[in-house]
Each structure stands twice: as structure tokens, then as C-alpha cells.
Design a protein around this nucleic acid. Sequence first.
DNA 1: GTGAAAGCGCTAACAG
DNA 2: CTGTTAGCGCTTTCAC
Lengths: 333, 333
Amino acid sequence: MVTMLDVARCAGVSKSTVSRVLNNKNVVREEIKALVYKAIAETGYRPNLLAQQLATQKTSMIGLVITNEVYNGPFFSTLVYNAAKFCEQHDHRLIFADGKHSADEEINAIDFLVRMKCAGVMVYARHTPHAELEKIINESPMPVMILNQRLSVCPDRNIFIDHYRGGEIVMDYLLSQGHTHIAWIGGKMPSPSNTARQQAWRDNVHPDCAALVAQGDWSMESGYQAALTLIDGAAPFTAILAANDDMALGAIKALKDRGLRVPQDISVAGFDNAKIGHYFSPSLTTLDTPIEQMIQCAVEQIVGLSPDRPAQGLTGTLVIRDSVGPVPVLMPN
Amino acid sequence: MVTMLDVARCAGVSKSTVSRVLNNKNVVREEIKALVYKAIAETGYRPNLLAQQLATQKTSMIGLVITNEVYNGPFFSTLVYNAAKFCEQHDHRLIFADGKHSADEEINAIDFLVRMKCAGVMVYARHTPHAELEKIINESPMPVMILNQRLSVCPDRNIFIDHYRGGEIVMDYLLSQGHTHIAWIGGKMPSPSNTARQQAWRDNVHPDCAALVAQGDWSMESGYQAALTLIDGAAPFTAILAANDDMALGAIKALKDRGLRVPQDISVAGFDNAKIGHYFSPSLTTLDTPIEQMIQCAVEQIVGLSPDRPAQGLTGTLVIRDSVGPVPVLMPN
DNA sequence: GTGAAAGCGCTAACAG
DNA sequence: CTGTTAGCGCTTTCAC
């Protein structure tokens, strides 16, 4: 491996001079500069970023911790896509650490990124208790931003989406269409999004519906199964609200497979506004979750672009499409 | 920031002793070990990974360069999900660099990862000429694995999928259903997958179909538009083959919107076996691309688990579902 | 302007 | 077993 010293020798100057021309520090004489560049080209020198970052005490990496339960759905895709996009936009690089499926593993993942001296780290966690997160935030030399869950402390390290309000928005729409008996398909717990959305459902739905709950795990398949359970249950309903679009889509397939029409017989709505929802039949009514905004906000906070407190309580907007219709006159179930 | 020296002082030992207990080198006396652990706890010491990696000359990061054109579809999602999964499986971390949309930017991204001293880097590029890639492979001290395109050199740094053969498999099936007039919806160029698949289409389709080509950019929307163009064109056809599932799904929506039934009037097939294909109506016939295998192979090659030459010429398997049917007796168009 | 020398925080001989 | 001493490759005073 060719180091800065090799370049220096090759150019007949000192290490510091090479460093200077590379960093445009102090004015180096033009002729020497040329010599150095020539030597760099000849030797094929590539500065070692580990060494550089150790010396300068700063890096250009932004860490992202993510529980692998959100993996591999449109939500994950959007999250990562936007994280990478905004990082690059600010000349940083995204580095990943898998939070897997326990508090210990999440904490480990954060620890890795902190010890890598990332410029900042974004945490999309599920299991770690808030007290623990708070401790990490306070002990870490770089900003650690907690995404998608509301902390009672450290508001400037916290960007969350108001999923309760989001749930209300969708429920309001469902109610406005005359639905009173609305079933709920939940995502995998623990999850702040799921909890809040479910609460919004519970608080707004007819009290008879308490039993109209089926548990999924965010995947289409689980939505499919959950819907079957609901259909086979005793309680009648005219609409299904699923905690995300994937499950809503799975549910629609289940309804169709059982000969039920959407939305004529049963209406279905979801959350997150996955792209496919527009192309599905029927196209999916959903809440557009402001993931992009959330990530942008986090990245800008880390790179120090937005001096003020990060945006909080983002809600998202309702996307009305075909999967929700007026309540049918006769309950089919 | 608390360093190893602080811990050493706190425990009343030398730096090397601390290092030893941390790395389980040489047997350190139990009582001293305890002292050190106590000091670590007291000081809240967190080892600096940059320093450690600089000193040991090895890192636990695996780099991934990816052109941002594949971003944000199911293909991207699967790629990143699996990359992260296999990295973690081998106790490594995934680090990202965006290849954006030009050869220069791709090379830059690779360079960053190389200079970060990643254990290895995986390159999913589109624009960089092979000669350039070859040069990078040879000059880099760590394995640089080129994914999804066939290099004429460096076979052990190259894992590709035989998209031509994959294309043939789908075409064979379409032909076996009696289709002769098959339209093609292509992805964004340049792309090795697209080129090879399109070639397979061209080599197997009826010569009359040369004009039955529409250009997309891999997105559902572009598939939708491409299908409209095809429908509005003069040439008749009974099937559409799209270079990926997203475009196939967009195309199906376009056909439906124009009152055409799939597959009764027009059959549609895609590539990649996106999860949603199973839930769509009609469910999508597609080729399951072995992305997971490709990534697994790359990661194992990097961590030195598979001593032999990496797998090459993976093809994938046909997933037969409902979007392709027998050719209709009367061409609808 | 440029070079020498002292770090950044850690590991790895080498003595003892 | 443990401490001392050099590095790893780069930046950054501080003199000249």
C-alpha cells in the first residue's frame, strides 16, 4: 500500500506538504504542488480515510439502525432510499447496522455506529426502552436521532410521526362513508406506529367492534391470513383498516378469494401509501406517511443544517382511491 | 472522550493490558481483568473503532455501490435487504455508496469504499466501462465483486446472472402458450439485465414484432405508459413481456384501463418475482431472479468462506401464475 | 512556504 | 503475565 510518505519521497518533499496540497491548506508554491500531483499520479496514491478520520476526529458517515422486522417491504425501501439520498445530498455516506429483534441487539447496533464515530446516527428501533435511548443520546458525542417514536425527553433528538392523528384521519374518512363496523388488522408488536394507529381505531370505532381485531406482522401474507380470520369470525363488519398497505393488499386478496367485492361488499384502507396501491385493483385508499420528511429532517439535523428544533408530529395526508366505498345497505357477512 | 489510556490509569495498569483483556489476548490474571472491567464500567469507555481498524489494518465493513436508478423498487429492496442480512450473518456491517448516474460517480463511490478499507466491496454498477472495473479490481487490496454483469476477465471477482437464459425461459413459456406476437417493454439503459433479456426476446419472437418495443425506466408508471403506447400502436400482439415486474404491473393496469382483460385478451409476464405479484389480480407470471444467491455468494467470497470460484450464470426459475394464458383465438387489437 | 515532530486511539512486537 | 516502545496513515502545531 502506498502512503503519503511514499508520495512525499517521490516528490522530494515532506509529508506535511503533501497533506497541505491535498487539503488546500496554507498556500503551497505552484511548482511544488505540480510536483506533488505528479507524484500522486505516478504512485497511484489513495488517501486512507480511516487514518484521516482518526486524525481529524470527524467522519462523513451517517449511521442508520433499523429493526429487521420492517425489512423488505415498501416502507423499508422508502426509508433506506431516502436515507441514502439525503446523506449523499450532504456529501455523507449511509452506514447500516441491523437492530435485529431485541433491545440488546439494537443497543449493540447503535454502539457500533457510535464507536465508528459517525457524524450522527438515526435510530429506527422497536425494542429499546426510552430510558436506555435517552442515556445513549446523552452519552454520545454525536447527535443520535430517534425516529418514529415519541420520547418524553430530548425533543431535539427526536423526530416522530403522529400516527394517532394519522389513524384518526383515516377513521374519520371511513366513518364519513357510513361505516360503523370496522375491523382492525394490526402489525407486529412492539411498534409505536401500530400502537398509535390501533388506538385511534379503537377510540373511534363502534364499541361492538372490540373483537374485530386480527394480528398480522406487516407482511402481505399475514394480512391475507388475518382477513380470512376476520371473515370466518362471527362478528359482521363492512370495512377493514390495516396498519400498513402490505397487509391491506393481502386482505383485499383474501376478500376476493372468498368472493367478496371490494369496495362494494367490504371497504379496505391502509397506511403508508406504497406505490403499488395506485396500480392495484381496486386502487388502495391509504394515508401517505411522511417518511421522506422525517428522514430529511434527521439528516439535516445531523449535518447541522437546521439549527432549530426538528419537525415533530408530522401527520401525513389521506390518499382517497377506490378501495373504500360507501357502506353497503346490507351487511354481507 | 475517554480513551484506553484513561481506563489504564483508572485501573492502575498499562494500556496494553487493557487492550489484552479487551481482545482476550495472552492470559491476563483474573484479578487484574476484574480491575480493568471495573475501570471500563466506571469510565464508560467505548473503544474507538477507527483507531482499532487503523491499527489492525482490517475492518468489519462491506461496501455496496449501487446506481440510484434501481432505487426504490422491489429489486432494490431485495438487494439491500439481503446484502444487510448476509453481512450481519458474518458479523460485518453494510456501508452504502451511491453510484448515482454516471461512470465518474460510480468510480468515486467505489473509491470511497476502498479508501475506507472495507473488507470487500460489492459493485452494482451500470455505467463504468469494464476496463475501468478491471483496473479497480486489480489495484484494490480487498476483493471488489462486480455483480450482475459479465466481465470477460477476473471471473473470481464476478458474479452474474444469466439474464439471457432467463429471458429464454420466459419466452419459451409464452411461446408454449401459443403466443407469437409478443411485445417488449424495456427498462432504462444502460443495463446488462435489460440488454440480455431484450436480446432473448428478440431472438425468439416472430420477426414481425421488431416494432413492438416500448421503452420504460423500470417504474410502474413507465410500464403503464409503455403499454398505452403499445396498445395505441398499429401492430397487433397477444402478450407483453416486461423487463421487470413493476413495469409488468403498470402494463396490466393500462390494459385494464383500456378495457382489455388479462390474460383472456392479452397475457403479461415480468421478471424478478416481486412479492406483490402473488397478490395482484391477475397474479403475475414472472421469473424468480436469484438476487439472494448472488448477494450471498458475493458476501461469502469477501469474508473468505467459499474458497472456490463464485457461482456464475445463475438463471432463476419460472413462476407460473395467472397473468399469462393461452393465446386468444381472435386478436383483440 | 516548508519540514520536523507530536499527536489521533489503538495494537503488536519485544523485553523482562 | 505485564510494561515499554513502536508503529498504523494522516493532520497539525511549531519552528525555521
